[in-house]
Nucleic acid binder design. Sequence first.
DNA 1: CCGCAGTAGTTCGTGACACGTACTATTGAC
DNA 2: GTCAATAGTACGTGTCACGAACTACTGCGG
Lengths: 143, 143
Amino acid sequence: MEETLSAASSLVRLTHLVHTLYADVGRGCDLTTAQAQMLCSLGNRPTGMAELSATLGVERSSLTGLVDRAEHRGLVVRQPDAQDRRAVKVALTDEGTDALQRFHDELTKKLEQLLTELPAKERDQFTGTLRRIVADAPAVFAD
Amino acid sequence: MEETLSAASSLVRLTHLVHTLYADVGRGCDLTTAQAQMLCSLGNRPTGMAELSATLGVERSSLTGLVDRAEHRGLVVRQPDAQDRRAVKVALTDEGTDALQRFHDELTKKLEQLLTELPAKERDQFTGTLRRIVADAPAVFAD
DNA sequence: CCGCAGTAGTTCGTGACACGTACTATTGAC
DNA sequence: GTCAATAGTACGTGTCACGAACTACTGCGG
């Protein structure tokens, strides 16, 4: 049916693959996909709702519930913003940091397994190009 | 913050990028992400519920509602299976075929734009490696 | 031919997400 | 001080996903 996959097709399949992995690893850490994404994004530093919603690509109104549930589970806290009394900063709790760590390690391991089959040279070229493509994409997965 | 992104990080960002694109294009065609995925998977041929759920990576019970809503919108139909009276085949309607076509074209265009910045040689190497990685991934996006 | 384990699909209850609209509180510019 | 803009929330609606329990049918062993 497909002797040679188009580039677009391959991209979609890769996305599907990674997304499924993401969901699986998340489940193993008792995190939903959306929660895992949020924790990853918060890994760098506490973030306001507006910025966080822009990074994650969801509406602010959606984020409210997301943070509510995560806060209720003890993964994050809302901190008042010292400069702006309207704003809050969402920050990881210790528990959230632990969950993020476990998630991040596990996912990184599985993702790298995707590439282990490749010869070193090809792998380096691939990841190099990959970096160029995503250079200015949102930081949804901290290093 | 990140002089050099790890391979895993880049993969996650790319996935997020493509996933967002997928959702945006879908919305433009009045399709949810799950619906668009289903249509893409049905593009090849009518498919039974069990096989479809395996391809999409969702439980059969989730798929029932997905097909219900899509059928209600006139995108797909359930056909009786001639060989097995328990089974049904889900097939695209004309309307579903049109929607898939529009979605597929638009998404392909946008995905290829991601790669247009690259020099031809680098792009070819990249897509070549990509194809190897996803060689045995589910066919969630027909060619 | 019968019984029965396995398979195909649905139903039901529950919870998580996502959206848009409308709202409150606060800020900052004029 | 007024007022538009911003930060965040509340609310109603719809979609999606899961697992457990259920019906209908198939195909195998006896």
